[in-house]
C-alpha cells in the first residue's frame, strides 16, 4: 500500500472521538463474547453462584456433553450441506437470471424484474404455514430438498438485484461481438459473464452464507428427523425456557458461533474486495 501521500492526518478531535466510538463498540462486542467463552468452561453451579468470575478449574466437559447430547456432529454436517448447496445454487441461478434480464431486448423482462423485486418484501413468517402445507402435499417435508428450495427462493430476490446492478455495468459490446462470432448464449454466460462476475459473486456468496448459516425456522418446521437438523436448531434444544443448565447452553452457543468466526477470518479480505468492486456501485 502506497499511503505515504500528501494526505494529512485527521484532526485530534476526530481521532479522539474515533477512539471513543471504536473502543465502545469493541468492548460491547468482546465483553459478552469473552464472558460467554470463559463461562462455558465453568461447571453449572459455578456459573450460577459467581456469574462474573473466571473459571476456577477450566474444563471442556460442557462441550463434550453438549456435543454428545445435542447430536451436534450431525447438525454441523447438515448445516454445511444446506448452506453450501443453497448458496452455490442461488449464485448461479441469480447470475443467469440477471444476465437474461439485462442483456436481452425482450419486453417481459420488466415484469420479471418487478416480480423478483417484490420478493424483497416478503418475510419468512408470512408464508411459513402455507409453505409447509404445500411441502406436505408434494412430499418435500422431511427431505433436504425441502429445506434447500425455500433457502434458494428466499435468497433469490436480493441476489438477482445485486447481480443485475453488476452485470448492467458490463458493456453490451462484449455480447454483440460474441453474437457476431456465432457463439451460443450459454457459452457466453459460462465463459464470459461468470468469470467477469467473480467480484460480485464473492459478495453474493458471503451474504448468502451468512443468511443460511443462522437460519432456524425452515429447518425447525420442515424437518422432524434428528438426522436432518441443522446447528441452530440443535443448539436451541439447550436454550429451553425451563433449562438452567447454563454450562451446556453456553458451550453449544460457542460451538454455534465458532464456524462463523473462522469463516469470517478466512474471507474477510475478499468480502471487502467484493463489496467494493462489485455489487454496490451505481
Amino acid at each position: 500500500m502506497n499511503d505515504r501521500s500528501l494526505l494529512r492526518r485527521a484532526p485530534l478531535s476526530w481521532r479522539a472521538s474515533a477512539y471513543v466510538i471504536m473502543i465502545a463498540f469493541a468492548v460491547l462486542t468482546i465483553f459478552p463474547l469473552v464472558w460467554l467463552g470463559y463461562s462455558s468452561l465453568k461447571p453449572n453451579a459455578e456459573i450460577v453462584k459467581y456469574p462474573l468470575a473466571l473459571p476456577k478449574a477450566p474444563s471442556f466437559s460442557n462441550y463434550a456433553e453438549a456435543w454428545k447430547k445435542g447430536g451436534l456432529d450431525v447438525a454441523l454436517l447438515n448445516s454445511f450441506l444446506y448452506t453450501a448447496v443453497a448458496t452455490v445454487s442461488t449464485l448461479f441461478l441469480a447470475l443467469a437470471a440477471a444476465f437474461g434480464l439485462t442483456k436481452f431486448p425482450f419486453a417481459s423482462k420488466k415484469f420479471f424484474t418487478g416480480a423478483f423485486a417484490l420478493g424483497l418484501m416478503i418475510t419468512v413468517h408470512a408464508v411459513i404455514i402455507p409453505l409447509f402445507l404445500l411441502e406436505v402435499r408434494i412430499g418435500l417435508v422431511n427431505t433436504r430438498l425441502g429445506v434447500i428450495l425455500p433457502y434458494i427462493a428466499f435468497d433469490l430476490p436480493i441476489s438477482v438485484m445485486i447481480a443485475i446492478s453488476f452485470i448492467k455495468g458490463i458493456p453490451d459490446a462484449i455480447l454483440e461481438s460474441a453474437e457476431i462470432d456465432g457463439a451460443k448464449y450459454r457459452q457466453v454466460f459460462w465463459l464470459m459473464i461468470v468469470p467477469l462476475c467473480t467480484p460480485v459473486a464473492t459478495t453474493m456468496l458471503i451474504l448468502s452464507f451468512l443468511r443460511h448459516w443462522n437460519e432456524f425456522l425452515f429447518v425447525f418446521i420442515f424437518t422432524t428427523k434428528t438426522a436432518l437438523k441443522s446447528l441452530p436448531v440443535a443448539i436451541t434444544q439447550f436454550a429451553g425456557r425451563q433449562n438452567i443448565e447454563y454450562g451446556l447452553q453456553y458451550a453449544s452457543l460457542v460451538i454455534g458461533i465458532l464456524p462463523m468466526i473462522v469463516f469470517y477470518f478466512i474471507f474477510h479480505s475478499q468480502l471487502r474486495k467484493g463489496f467494493g468492486e462489485g455489487a454496490l456501485k451505481e
Binding site: 437474461g100 416480480a115 428450495l149 428466499f154
Partner: peptide, 22 residues
C-alpha cells in the same frame, strides 16, 4: 428461448415457493 432458459429456472423456484403462500 435462451433468454427464457436463463430466467425461468430462478423464476420458477421463486414463484413456486413464494407466490403460492402469499
Amino acid at each position: 428461448l435462451s433468454y427464457l432458459s436463463f430466467i425461468l429456472p430462478a423464476f420458477l423456484i421463486y414463484v413456486g415457493i413464494m407466490v403460492f403462500p402469499v
